[in-house]
Amino acid sequence: MAKNRNSEGRAPSQRQLRVGELIRRRLSEMLQRGDVNDPDLARMSITVGEVRCSPDLRVATAYVLPLGGGQKEECLAALRNNRHEIRREVSKALSIKFAPEIRFEIDDTFDRMDATTRMLNDPHVRQDLDK
């Protein structure tokens, strides 16, 4: 998926990856079931592509995308407005000392994949690849 490096340029630890995946699964379950008491979130179908944790596991950034790619700003606003409830519910599924602060960002992985595909299909690039 997206670039998987922490702020110091090192690859994430196994613990960061494991906690990030646990958070991603719990977030996905919550959003799919409608466990968050918000009518705006209930009407949206949101995909959680990846969750990256800081080295101290105090901050988790969730990369999300609403189904179809539309309503990105509404999706972010609804998630950010409910971040305290989401954090509380996610912390119940984790067995770590501190519940991480959850930040939400739009997952641009698919946009970058499309841009790469367009670039590779460009006639000027294609002629170099065909050689």
Rank of each mutant, 00 (worst) to 15 (best):
A2M: 13
N4A: 10
R5D: 05
R5P: 08
R5S: 09
R5K: 15
S7E: 15
S7N: 12
S7H: 13
S7R: 13
G9K: 07
R10Y: 15
A11M: 13
A11W: 06
P12S: 01
P12W: 10
Q14I: 07
L17G: 01
R18N: 14
R18Y: 09
V19Y: 02
V19D: 02
E21F: 00
E21Q: 12
I23T: 01
R24W: 01
R26P: 02
R26W: 06
R26G: 04
S28K: 08
E29F: 03
N37M: 08
P39M: 10
P39L: 10
P39S: 15
D40P: 07
D40N: 13
A42M: 08
A42C: 04
A42P: 07
R43L: 05
R43P: 02
S45R: 13
I46Q: 03
V48W: 09
G49N: 12
G49W: 06
E50L: 12
E50V: 12
V51F: 08
R52P: 07
C53G: 06
C53H: 00
P55I: 05
P55R: 15
D56S: 10
L57E: 01
L57W: 05
R58V: 05
V59K: 04
A60Y: 00
A62S: 09
A62G: 04
Y63A: 02
Y63V: 05
Y63L: 09
Y63M: 10
V64F: 01
L65C: 13
L65N: 04
L65W: 00
P66I: 11
P66R: 14
L67C: 05
G68S: 08
G68W: 04
G69F: 02
G70D: 15
G70H: 14
E74A: 14
C75M: 09
A78K: 08
A78P: 01
A78T: 04
L79G: 03
R80V: 04
R83K: 14
R83F: 12
R83P: 00
H84A: 13
I86V: 11
R87S: 12
R87T: 14
R87E: 05
R87Y: 04
R88T: 05
V90Q: 06
S91P: 01
S91D: 01
K92S: 10
A93E: 09
S95V: 10
I96E: 13
K97Q: 12
A99P: 03
P100S: 04
E101V: 09
E101G: 00
I102Y: 03
R103W: 06
F104K: 02
F104I: 06
E105N: 02
E105V: 06
I106P: 06
I106T: 06
D107T: 03
D107I: 01
D108P: 00
T109Q: 06
F110A: 14
D111P: 02
M113H: 14
D114W: 08
D114A: 13
A115E: 15
A115M: 10
T117H: 12
L120W: 08
L120S: 11
L120P: 11
L120R: 13
N121D: 08
N121L: 15
N121H: 12
D122Y: 03
D122K: 09
P123V: 10
H124I: 07
H124Y: 10
V125Y: 11
V125W: 13
R126I: 04
Q127T: 14
Q127M: 09
D128P: 00
L129A: 10
K131G: 14
K131T: 10
